[in-house]
C-alpha cells in the first residue's frame, strides 16, 4: 500500500542525505519526496510517499525515528488527511490543439500560466491521481515537459505535526 509520511527534520547540514540514504541503504522505496523549510526556522518538513506492506512501513517509520535529525513524524495515511501536489506541464499548443489544451485545463481546474505561439505552460494542483489523469489527457496532444513537486500533505482537523 502507498503511504505518505511527513517528517519534521532538524534544519542541519547532512540531515536530508541521512533520510535519503536510509531509504537506499535499507532497500526501501521512495516514490516522491518533497522538502522545504517550515515557519520554525530550525525545522524542515519533508514528505515522502512510499509503497510497502505493513511490516515494511513499520520498519521505515522506526528507522526514520531512529535518525537523530528526525524530530517527529506521522504516517498521514493512517488518518484523514489532505494530499496535494503541484505540477507544471508544457504542452504543444498549435492550431486546434490550442483550444483543446485550454478546454482540458479548465475541466481539471488547471491554469495556463505561460504562453508562446507554440507552447502553453499549465499549472495544476491536486492529489497524485488527478495529476496522472491530466498527464494522460494531455498525452495525445503532445506533452513537452513535466515538473512535479512530489506530494505534500497535512492531517485533517485538529491533529498537528509540530514541536
Amino acid at each position: 500500500m502507498r503511504h505518505i509520511i511527513s517528517i519534521l527534520l532538524e534544519n542541519e547540514p547532512g540531515a536530508l542525505s541521512r533520510v535519503v540514504g536510509l531509504f537506499s541503504q535499507r532497500n526501501f522505496n521512495i516514490e516522491t519526496l518533497n522538502v522545504a523549510p517550515t515557519e520554525e526556522p530550525s525545522l524542515s518538513r519533508l514528505t515522502v510517499t512510499t509503497v510497502g506492506d505493513d511490516r515494511v512501513i513499520e520498519q521505515i517509520t522506526k528507522h526514520l525515528n531512529k535518525l537523530i535529525d528526525v524530530v517527529k513524524l506521522v504516517d498521514l495515511t493512517e488518518g484523514n488527511h489532505i494530499e496535494r501536489e503541484l505540477m507544471l506541464v508544457k504542452v504543444k499548443a498549435l492550431g486546434a490543439a490550442r483550444d483543446e489544451v485550454k478546454r482540458t485545463a479548465d475541466i481539471f481546474r488547471a491554469q495556463i500560466v505561460d504562453v508562446t505561439p507554440s507552447v502553453y505552460t499549465v499549472q495544476i494542483t491536486g492529489d497524485g491521481g488527478k495529476l496522472d489523469a491530466f498527464v494522460q489527457a494531455m498525452a495525445p496532444i503532445g506533452i513537452l515537459e513535466v515538473a512535479r513537486t512530489g506530494v505534500s500533505g497535512i492531517a485533517r482537523g485538529d491533529k498537528l505535526l509540530s514541536l
Binding site: 547540514p13 547532512g14 542525505s17 540514504g21 537523530i68
Partner: peptide, 16 residues
C-alpha cells in the same frame, strides 16, 4: 568522511 561513513555511524557532526 561524513558521507563515506553515513551508513555505519549512529550519527555524525561537522564542526562549523
Amino acid at each position: 568522511i561524513v558521507g563515506v561513513t553515513r551508513p555505519v555511524v549512529k550519527h555524525s557532526f561537522s564542526i562549523k
